[in-house]
């Protein structure tokens, strides 16, 4: 064991002891949720406030929707960085894809994966799920299609314009839905206060703008992460 590793281990032991002693000072969860705090407020008034039954979605797309917009920007920046790093690459990894057997079985399987992704996005406000999870499911579906059918399919189906449209549509839809509230003189991204219908609580068409925001984030996450994978798996054209 070298000196560097020993020093690192000693540092980590000290860090662990400090962290452990700090854990004892953490407040009890039930104490933090006492009357008057933000959690107390959300647990009692989220359904009348937002119409969403799943409180995590209510926090993400209503109370803290502006943070979610910021997160969409982070994903956009990461994808833009990956595309920039591989800017000059044009050649394809696997033009033809796998064997006909794999293609036939994928023909049966792919629709169901896509269906699961759309289900998770659209039912995000009434059951576990939402735009983020469904978006990643759709991204892995796109990755599977590219792997099985070959990357040439991806370039035939998804031209530059379609990619640009998908990548921008999510973020633009999110901002546009937020801007609707500005017309009525409300805060950016406000939901029921801006006149979105609460609908029948617990059904698919309810909770005002939350399902639409879920679709926007799902588009954004799915197109961004799938594009990141496809860009990374391309072969280098200039070396």
């Amino acid at each position: 064991m070298t000196l560097g590793k020993t020093a690192t281990l000693a540092f980590l032991v000290i860090l662990a002891v400090l962290l452990f002693s700090a854990m004892g000072a953490l407040p009890e969860t039930t104490d933090r949720m006492e009357a008057g705090g933000p959690t107390w407020h959300i647990l009692r008034s989220a359904v009348p406030d937002t119409g969403a039954v799943n409180l995590v979605t209510a926090v993400l797309f209503d109370y803290r929707a502006f943070d979610t917009l910021g997160e969409a920007t982070v994903i956009f920046t990461a994808v833009a960085g990956v595309v920039l790093v591989f800017a000059r690459e044009a050649m394809v990894l696997s033009g033809k894809g796998l064997s006909p057997l794999a293609k036939k079985s994928m023909d049966i399987l792919t629709p169901f994966i896509a269906l699961l992704g759309f289900y998770v996005i659209l039912f995000g406000h009434i059951s576990p799920g939402g735009g983020f999870q469904g978006g990643v499911i759709l991204a892995s579906w796109a990755i599977l299609v590219v792997l099985i059918y070959g990357i040439r399919t991806e370039e035939d189906v998804l031209t530059g314009f379609v990619k640009m449209f998908l990548e921008s549509a999510g973020a633009l839809l999110f901002v546009a839905l937020g801007a609707v509230a500005l017309i009525g003189g409300r805060e950016f991204l406000s939901n029921l206060a801006a006149g979105f219908s609460p609908g029948d609580v617990g059904s698919v068409i309810s909770a005002g703008s939350i399902p639409l925001l879920n679709v926007a984030i799902g588009l954004k996450v799915a197109s961004g992460l799938a594009m990141m994978f496809v860009t990374m798996s391309k072969k280098d054209g200039d070396s």
């Binding site: 995590v56 979605t57 998770v120 576990p128 799920g129 939402g130 983020f132 999870q133 990643v136 499911i137």
Partner: peptide, 10 residues
Amino acid sequence: PDVAMAEAVV
């Protein structure tokens, strides 16, 4: 469950 779903997929 929401976090579990995201972690499993990602």
